[in-house]
Design a protein around this nucleic acid. Structure first.
Lengths: 334, 334
DNA sequence: TTTAATTACGTAAACGTTTTCGGATTAATT
DNA sequence: AATTAATCCGAAAACGTTTACGTAATTAAA
């Protein structure tokens, strides 16, 4: 009473045509309520479940969306997925996950493999390593696609992002108000609008407060975490900043470790502030002042947009910007 | 040169039959190398990608596996997914993700929705709330299934787990050796073999060292994190343990917060040790002694097993147990 | 009463593959 | 030379749906 029960079987059992059963199951207006009920009850009784492959083959609908992201083991993205999944479930959709590991080749390879009708739409946050805007320029014409958080700026597509510039400006000002004069910047996502916006905000905030920029105070993210640790340590030793402003979560551990190793007290000797979705920020010692992006909501919004597109609903906005929040904690205490 | 290119088109273009093209693409022995090459080059030239729905409908293979887990926003599971994905990619498989949010109804609903041939196999870590071993008993007969970490003990199925008992015993002994006499146990996963094993090991280790058990020292996980915080605080205040042994990661934040609020110094007044895959354990202050499960490897092993089953390879073991490691840090310093 | 519209259902083609079976050609064996 | 075997390929039937189109019966409009 489970195997081999298909639409044909239902039709035979009820002495009606296959077409009628199919239409009844899809609640078509062409079918009377009476027969619909007969079909529905038998379907439930025999525990009928439609064959997705057959349905997809004929109708070109997969009831599946794909999420292409750099890495699931990252607080921001795992929270985003949680949000995406919640919305997908509401629409009865399935969610495929692909990790690019910041590798643009994989990113393109995966995305291409989805183009043969495996999914109805794609949610993606591009890798930070390299750009290929030509690829995406043609891609967005082929498949419903929503970018979230990490986007291409020159691309006209649906994008969900956060107020990176504003919040980074606010954060920099916060450090300045805490008395910091030599604020180091730990630069991540250099190739992406988000990364650039954060850095620009940092620079603009310094200028606005008449603080000279200093290239020595800027270090860049390296994929090898040991390298990051060394460069933070070197920065602290050689350039002696009074604050670390990290634009990405990945610099937090090396920063704390480096300060510990160099016996630099946080926050009295050096203050730390970072973009982060770590739930442990509040129990670090000192607890960490963070810019926290609404990762869960970004996932939800991105998914909602995609479903609007899939359902041919009009989008009010092709670009949605959500607000991040600055959570002040001990690491920036005066 | 991308839309509408299917096997039929290739056949026409090459003046051979559809069957031949299909077989050539699948590298069948029936086809000569010469025609294979003709097919392959044209396929590449026209950028042909097979239609997965059609292929699946006919062959009953989806090249897709599902991962059903409580929550992606959990270090253990996100790392597991990373491992699963890596193996899946090697086999050219796609990965569907389903979060149950510890809700057995959702768990069953999702899993059932996969039974109509949407996936070739399932990897799952069951929810901790309730049990339904009847359901899984019939399920394992219907679909290739591998359990990882959170399993049903009475079920004869392929399982990947860790040495929960041994490592929990070792951890408890570590606390005892550190001089702790009143070790509180923060109990999670009560309904699951892993949770029970950890608790049994805790009790057995105490007995082995002639330390009396005390029910007052045991508190249980509640899904509301505020409740956990209050119960840890109450425990620390009223029962005055000299150590907290947490069987799950979720107790870490409430524990640190409670100690801070009660001005209890860690580790001098109270030591803390927890199962955890948090990468920030090392920068907590004091850094946290953890039992860390090989989450990534568990994911890899589980996926490998599933693919062995899917490829009809013989499994050496129906049950694989991986070793966790006890990482001693400051939170259990003497 | 006739015509038109509406309702309810069936026929059959299509979606793009895989696979069984059989046939033709060539090579190897008696 | 006759038989067998090996190699290579094609015809056609599936897989389980959806959907365009046709049609009969009923109802509404003229």
């Amino acid at each position: 009473m489970a195997e081999g029960v298909n639409i044909k079987r239902l039709a035979q059992e009820l002495n009606i045509s296959i077409a009628t059963v199919s239409k009844a199951l899809n609640d078509s207006y062409e079918i009377s309520l009476k027969t619909k009920n007969r079909v529905w009850t038998l379907a439930k009784e025999l525990n009928y479940t439609p064959n997705p492959a057959a349905s997809n083959l004929r109708s070109h609908k997969t009831k599946t969306i794909a999420v292409v992201i750099p890495c699931v083991a990252n607080n921001f993205f795992s929270l985003s997925i949680k949000g995406i999944e919640e919305i997908a479930r509401q629409y009865g959709y399935h969610v495929l996950i692909y990790q690019t590991h910041e590798n643009i080749k994989m990113e393109i390879e995966f995305t291409n493999s989805l183009l043969s009708g495996r999914v109805d739409g794609i949610l993606t946050s591009v890798s930070s390593s390299e750009h290929n805007s030509e690829y995406y320029k043609t891609l967005v014409k082929k498949v419903p696609l929503v970018f979230f958080d990490r986007v291409y700026e020159d691309l006209e597509a649906v994008k969900i992002t956060t107020d990176d510039y504003d919040i980074a400006f606010e954060a920099t000002e916060h450090l300045i108000k805490c008395g910091c004069k030599r604020i180091a910047y730990l630069y991540g996502l250099e190739n992406l609008p988000a990364g650039k916006a954060r850095f620009n905000a940092y620079q603009d905030a310094l200028k606005a407060h008449n603080i000279a920029l200093d290239d020595e105070l800027v270090i860049r993210y390296h994929e090898d975490e040991d390298v990051n640790f060394e460069s933070v340590k070197q920065l602290l030793k050689a350039v002696k900043p009074d604050a670390l402003f990290s634009s990405i979560e990945e610099f937090i551990i090396p920063s704390y470790l480096a300060c510990k190793e160099l016996n630099l007290n946080v926050p009295s000797a050096v203050k730390i502030l970072s973009f982060s979705n770590m739930d442990t920020a509040k129990i670090l010692n000192p607890s960490l002042t963070t810019i926290t992006q609404p990762a869960f909501e970004i996932g939800r919004e991105a998914a909602k947009c995609l479903f609007k597109i899939l359902n041919k609903k009009e989008l009010e906005e092709r670009s949605i910007v959500l607000k991040s929040i600055l959570i002040k904690r001990e690491s920036t205490n005066i």
